[in-house]
Write a protein that binds this DNA or RNA. Sequence first.
DNA 1: ATCACTGGTGGGAGCGCTCCCACAGTACCT
DNA 2: AGGTACTGTGGGAGCGCTCCCACCAGTGAT
Lengths: 351, 351
Amino acid sequence: MASHGARGRSGGRPTLEEVAARAGVGRGTVSRVINGSPRVSDATRAAVEAAVAELGYVPNTAARALAANRTDAIALVVPEPETRFFSEPYFSDMLKGVGAELSDTEMQLLLIFAGSDKERRRLAQYLAAHRVDGVLLVSVHADDPLPDLLAQLDIPAVISGPRSAAETLPSVDSDNYGGARQAVEHLLSRGRRRVAHITGRLDVYGAQRRTEGYRDALSDAGHEVDDALIEPGDFTEEGGSRAMAALLERRPDLDAVFAASDVTAAGARQALREAGRRIPDDVALVGYDDSAIARHMEPPLTSVRQPIEVMGRRMIDLLLTEVADRRPLASRGLDRRQVVLATELVPRSSS
Amino acid sequence: MASHGARGRSGGRPTLEEVAARAGVGRGTVSRVINGSPRVSDATRAAVEAAVAELGYVPNTAARALAANRTDAIALVVPEPETRFFSEPYFSDMLKGVGAELSDTEMQLLLIFAGSDKERRRLAQYLAAHRVDGVLLVSVHADDPLPDLLAQLDIPAVISGPRSAAETLPSVDSDNYGGARQAVEHLLSRGRRRVAHITGRLDVYGAQRRTEGYRDALSDAGHEVDDALIEPGDFTEEGGSRAMAALLERRPDLDAVFAASDVTAAGARQALREAGRRIPDDVALVGYDDSAIARHMEPPLTSVRQPIEVMGRRMIDLLLTEVADRRPLASRGLDRRQVVLATELVPRSSS
DNA sequence: ATCACTGGTGGGAGCGCTCCCACAGTACCT
DNA sequence: AGGTACTGTGGGAGCGCTCCCACCAGTGAT
């Protein structure tokens, strides 16, 4: 853990100037070495590195930020209360990917919750102060003012889950449409014929796409799409349960359900059980997310897995590119950088 | 969200200087107003505030940090991989308390994971660069070098869960000893006579205290402490299960178990069930933490609840005091600031 | 020998603040 | 009238970097 032996006189930490003196070079040269500029001779570089090691020099971030007008920090903004953040394995996986991708960088990651109004005001203030070089936005609703604020402040941002087909921000998403198709095609291949669908919150673009995937998978397979087999949910367990009850009432002959999330599926399972339907014997059930819930459900739930960790990594990729492009005067806005990652169906005994 | 209307010429954000010019005062005066100094006349203050609002001025944190040698940020350091952090509701509750207590402050909270060696090296570097004014340490093992590093760098720190009775750092903890006593006394009051104990990791001070509480509760009630009824665990489910099996083999007549954590209790329950013992009929079970596991267990688990959110708040209290004391030359080291909070037994049907 | 260059280097200027000293103004004693 | 003690204020001097321009060899072409 570094040598903290020798120190500058004033009892404080050594400065660039002191390193320069010790190495017998100028300030500029030390700065070049520290920042890995190639325009330094090997001998000089070695001398500077020795001085750095001897003094235990660590650059002063504040000074660097002031002089270079950058912070070397990016924020992961979660517009939800802490509680949801922790309960959803989604976030933890994403954070893992983000952390991994960031680990060979100098960038520092800040985690900022903006669930309450108060927290959002603080965040706005924080961003206005340009305390981060870029922002990672997760689970943003279509009408959130945050993306606009960021654009206005000219702060690079990447969003996970575009807000619409016309998303202007760089984004990373999984293939919601394709994932939904996989789920429905799987059910059809198992011989199911009356496949119902409980949607997610339809103000979330990804949820819309899943519903579209459901429709297209059915019609492409030569089935007609029966609107009576579609019931809106809201990604919650209660919503799933309520929707399932409604579907059973309307179409008691259904033999399969594609739920827009695992949590929704858990609610649906509850309603099915109360109605005396067996899973998968009477009704096959497929969820979305492949979360812990899916593995622990009774019976284990077939689900569509998203590569969340990879999504985290790709978001960092995009953001770092954005940040780097911002340094000189880069041309932006034209090339929409939207990444879409493939999903995978994980079959279990619920279907 | 602030007015971002008028701007300084250079296209950039307005500076102190510009605010001063606009308000017709000097730089020093604006600085005083911004920092809430009382040595400013009301008229001047009003003029400055107006200028600030008109220009949408936001102080440059880097400049402030450089000039004032502080960062207005503190770090919550978690020496565990992300995964554990997210799975334990402990952390989420603590974070809630910390966030709440920090919300009427200018302080920014950074969440830093230091589970791997690589991450720890980065953290050391980060701390050496003095990028935070203080550190909150959670779940630190007795032999962790982190506290020493912090002391060496002279960075204020507060620890949750002292490393030993001789802890030198300010700390916040719940009353592990008392909590254990509550658990055992509860079991005795229910008529149990052969109360076993599965310990936590005994290199964790809190776990030791729980075991001491178990012993003292028994002997104070006039029971002899039988070492054959004590089996070491490690806070994990497997550990709990293994320990329970060992106990059953050694003392098949036991009629109650106090487990050092809910997770341990979950493991014990498994082993008891496999041995054909009914809970609570044959064996009563009490856990520790009152986590979600306790509520969802079958049967629901009696457990000892710690006021984790409050602990988070108190940690911030202590840390902010430390940080403030550090500004002038305060006398430290003498008054050990150790906070211990009371626990509460939550009885459920497992006992 | 002269004139380009080019890789390597030193150091001034400045980033936007806070700190602190100096000073004007007023008030209240001797 | 002359001190003494404030309160409120302006502005110089940094904080420790990065940026950039100037400069000094050396090298090869003319």
